[in-house]
Design a protein around this nucleic acid. Structure first.
Lengths: 332, 332
DNA sequence: GTGAAAGCGCTAACAA
DNA sequence: TTGTTAGCGCTTTCAC
């Protein structure tokens, strides 16, 4: 393995100059630059990341702390972050943790200090823990939050407009002629759940549609709760002709419940989900749903941390209505 | 942040002695050991991993190279590996890559050398690339393969007995009284696909059941192919009363196809899958399937790499038949 | 059983 | 614009 000394020797310069080139510092003569670059290519030299972070103040390492709420969500987050890191010459350190561990602030600061992490990315739900935020701020570690629900101004963050997305769901259903709308809510502890409810109901009201209280069922984002809620909804004498579920798992559960009760989707019931998780396309009929840009959010978080992009401290990403076959005109 | 010097000073020993304690080397006097341990605890000292791997020959870092074939599978692999690493004081470096990148051998060796990785874990399909294996062997980097299908004796590895698992599926169906069995095969490039087919057919034959050729459909592990295959199977005049799909995605597709054609599962058709992926439990009825211990396999791979366990170079993990509601006695 | 000193490969501060 | 000299915090010789 070639070292920086080898490169310096071949290029006929000092190691510091090589270092300058490596780190894109200004003030390097063009021909020096070229010679160093050539030597690097020649020797297939790659800096040793350990030496780099030991000597310097950066590590090219980003820490992702999470308390795995949903498998698919985390897979998307990690996938998006890892790929972007790779593109930028960074690496991702993934640290599972316990959302209610009282020791979490100390743990995170300690890991950040020892590895000289260039920054931290947090996802829900720990993204909203005040003691964690305090500790990170005090330790002066750069932090990007993904989808924070409290105190958003406190740190740079990445999010999407859940409320506007839910509005879109309501418009879609209204456009199809549905008037008896039902909804299965998300987990009450999850800020997005409330936003989705508000957006959906407001937009429905705009179109002159009000949801009767017994058409609004509590839920918790799980298939099981969604299934039970859907069964109740479908047993109602004036059952809704269209149901908006707070996420795809519950939407899938609604489709399953409809099947079980001999109702055909979308002829007898339209169902719309939220997330565009993999399940949306591995059931029949495939779900109409809102595509949440989870991978893109993680990638944007990396960008913000690296500071390689525009310096906006807040990034709002777009969503998309994926119209598939679980929704259709009222009455088939 | 405390350094090794601080610990040495507090314990009244040299840094080398602290280092000995940290690395569990033999020949440290009991009271010295105790004093050092006390100092470490006192100062809440944690060795700097960068300094450690720069100076020493280990990094406490394990590399996982993968070409994300299936989201759920990789999430399980990563989850299992990360958790076990964390327990053992290691960290996991996750490196997505391209399975057909001709440069892969060089890339992997380079990353391993620069990070001084303590070892590599490979998953299908790159686990079977000969040039990759050659390069890793030549670079003398410890390697554990997960579910290799070619040349298993070549390296230590972790796997499960796909064939025996598939036999179990056949016995289950036979025990329920089914005689007209169908099967949807996995991807032909995937070694496990063949093993599952062989196990299923052999076990069926044992019970005096032979699958008619038109009841064996090719597939590729995808929902879409599975759906098409199931539709063909169900359109047959003497359609099977039970179908074994090569994985859960295709089993879910089979249930969906049955629904679409007005057949009720399991009354009119029993379906059994393979993997016990999350989808198995978010459809209706939930799938009877073989639980594949993916997380445990990844954890075992870490164990083998760290050498912290029994020194067997091959580890075979158990599977489990998860009987749920997609299978039932023939004729309902 | 323990310690002194010399690096690991790089960047930081300061000089030139 | 470039080079010199110290470290970063640890493990490794090789003595004792």
């Amino acid at each position: 393995m070639a070292t920086i000394f080898d490169v310096a020797r071949v290029a006929g310069v000092s190691t510091k100059t090589v270092s300058r080139v490596l780190n894109n510092e200004a003030r390097v003569a063009d021909d020096t630059l070229a010679r160093v670059r050539a030597a690097v290519a020649d020797l297939d030299y790659r800096p040793n990341p350990n030496a780099r972070s030991l000597a310097g103040r950066r590590s090219y390492l980003i820490g992702l702390f999470y308390d795995n709420p949903s498998r698919n969500y985390m897979a998307d987050i990690m996938g998006g972050a890892i790929r972007r890191c790779q593109e930028k010459g960074y690496h991702l350190l993934t640290e599972p943790c316990e959302a209610d561990d009282p020791n979490l602030p100390r743990l995170m600061v300690s890991v950040a200090a020892r590895f000289r992490l260039d920054g931290l990315i947090l996802t829900p739900p720990i993204v909203d823990r005040q003691d964690v935020l305090d500790a990170i701020a005090q330790a002066n570690v750069p932090l990007i939050r993904i989808a924070p629900r409290t105190d958003p101004a406190r740190t740079p963050h990445v999010h999407m407009d859940d409320e506007a997305a839910a509005r879109l769901a309501a418009y879609h259903l209204a456009d199809l002629g549905h008037t008896r709308l039902g909804m299965i809510l998300g987990h009450p502890d999850h800020g997005a759940a409330e936003l989705r409810q508000r957006g959906f109901m407001d937009a429905a009201a705009e179109r002159g549609l009000t949801l009767s209280p017994d058409h609004i069922m509590p839920g918790d984002f799980s298939f099981a709760r969604g299934f039970a809620a859907a069964e109740q909804l479908l047993a109602l004498p004036n059952r809704p002709t269209a149901i908006f579920a707070g996420n795809d798992d519950m939407a899938a559960a609604t489709v399953a419940a409809a099947n079980k009760h001999g109702l055909q989707v979308p002829r007898d019931l339209s169902v719309i989900g939220f997330d565009d998780s993999p399940i949306a396309q591995v059931i029949w009929p495939p779900l109409t749903t809102i595509r949440q840009p989870t991978m893109a959010m993680a990638a944007a978080a990396v960008d913000l941390l690296i500071g390689d992009s525009d310096p906006e401290p807040v990034r709002q990403l777009g969503f998309e209505l994926m119209v598939r076959q679980s929704t259709g005109p009222v009455g088939g």
